[in-house]
Measured scan of single mutants.
Amino acid sequence: EALLLQRRRVTVRKADAGGLGISIKGGRENKMPILISKIFKGLAADQTEALFVGDAILSVNGEDLSSATHDEAVQVLKKTGKEVVLEVKYMKD
């Protein structure tokens, strides 16, 4: 459990079709971090076996998301290339 509370760096390699394969919720306007709300089976994020629903995305390719709005986070995630480095931390409810 202590492991979950540490920052983790996960590299996601996207397939030619399909994006990261995650849905996010939260954002500055909700006074919440950007959280992974869904991981789609078989897509890139799922294949890492290292990302979990409830993980907060702290940064994407080094771009800090700690004070991002939901829309800003969506845009940052959309413009990523084939390889995406996510810094995440599991957030307890």
Rank of each mutant, 00 (worst) to 15 (best):
E1R: 08
E1T: 08
E1W: 06
A2K: 14
A2T: 15
A2G: 14
A2E: 14
A2R: 14
A2M: 15
L3E: 09
L3R: 09
L3A: 08
L4F: 13
L4I: 12
L4S: 09
L4W: 11
L5W: 10
R7V: 13
R7G: 09
R7A: 08
R7E: 09
R8P: 01
V10W: 03
V10E: 03
V10M: 04
T11N: 08
T11I: 14
T11S: 09
T11K: 10
V12A: 06
V12P: 01
V12T: 02
V12H: 00
R13T: 15
R13I: 15
R13G: 06
R13N: 12
K14S: 09
K14A: 09
K14W: 08
A15P: 13
A15S: 15
A15V: 13
A15H: 11
A15G: 10
D16Y: 09
D16I: 09
D16L: 11
D16C: 11
A17N: 14
G18T: 13
G18N: 12
G19C: 05
G19R: 09
G19D: 06
L20E: 03
L20S: 00
L20F: 07
L20C: 05
L20H: 04
L20N: 00
L20M: 10
L20A: 00
L20I: 13
G21Y: 00
G21C: 04
G21A: 04
G21T: 00
G21M: 03
I22Y: 02
I22P: 01
I22T: 02
I22H: 01
S23T: 14
S23I: 11
S23H: 12
S23M: 15
S23P: 02
I24Y: 00
I24M: 05
I24E: 03
I24F: 05
K25C: 13
K25G: 11
G26C: 02
G26M: 03
G26W: 01
G26F: 02
G27N: 04
G27I: 00
G27T: 00
G27H: 02
R28S: 13
N30D: 15
I34H: 04
I34D: 03
L35R: 07
L35F: 10
I36P: 00
I36Y: 03
I36K: 03
I36F: 03
I36R: 01
S37L: 04
S37N: 10
K38V: 06
K38G: 10
I39H: 03
I39W: 05
I39R: 02
F40L: 10
F40R: 14
F40I: 12
F40W: 10
F40K: 15
G42C: 07
A45C: 10
A45V: 10
A45M: 05
D46F: 07
D46I: 02
D46H: 09
D46V: 03
D46R: 04
D46P: 05
D46S: 10
Q47I: 08
Q47C: 12
Q47H: 09
Q47S: 11
Q47N: 13
T48C: 15
T48A: 13
T48F: 03
T48Y: 03
T48I: 03
T48Q: 06
T48L: 01
T48K: 05
E49V: 06
E49N: 15
E49I: 04
A50L: 12
A50Q: 15
A50C: 11
A50V: 06
L51F: 06
L51P: 04
L51W: 02
L51H: 02
F52G: 05
F52I: 07
F52W: 07
F52E: 11
F52N: 11
V53K: 05
V53F: 00
V53G: 00
G54F: 01
G54E: 05
D55A: 02
D55E: 02
D55C: 03
D55I: 01
A56Q: 12
A56V: 10
A56R: 07
A56C: 10
I57S: 02
I57H: 00
L58H: 04
L58E: 07
L58G: 00
L58Q: 06
L58C: 08
L58V: 08
L58M: 12
S59G: 09
S59M: 09
V60Q: 01
V60W: 02
V60M: 05
V60H: 02
N61T: 01
N61M: 04
N61K: 01
N61S: 05
N61P: 00
G62R: 05
G62N: 08
G62T: 05
G62P: 00
G62E: 07
G62K: 05
G62H: 06
E63L: 14
E63P: 01
E63Q: 13
E63T: 14
D64L: 05
D64C: 07
D64A: 05
L65N: 01
L65R: 01
L65D: 00
S66F: 07
S66Q: 13
S66V: 09
S66W: 06
S66Y: 07
S66H: 08
S66D: 07
S67C: 10
A68F: 08
A68M: 15
A68K: 09
T69K: 06
T69W: 04
T69C: 07
T69A: 06
H70Q: 13
D71P: 07
D71A: 15
D71M: 09
D71V: 07
D71H: 11
D71Q: 11
E72A: 08
E72W: 06
E72M: 09
E72P: 01
E72G: 05
E72R: 08
V76G: 08
V76A: 15
V76D: 07
T80N: 10
T80A: 13
G81D: 09
V84A: 08
V85I: 15
E87K: 04
E87N: 05
E87A: 04
E87F: 05
K89H: 11
K89F: 08
K89A: 13
Y90Q: 14
Y90W: 08
Y90V: 05
Y90L: 10
Y90H: 12
M91G: 08
M91Y: 15
K92T: 15
K92Y: 11
D93C: 07
D93V: 07
D93N: 08
D93W: 08
D93I: 10
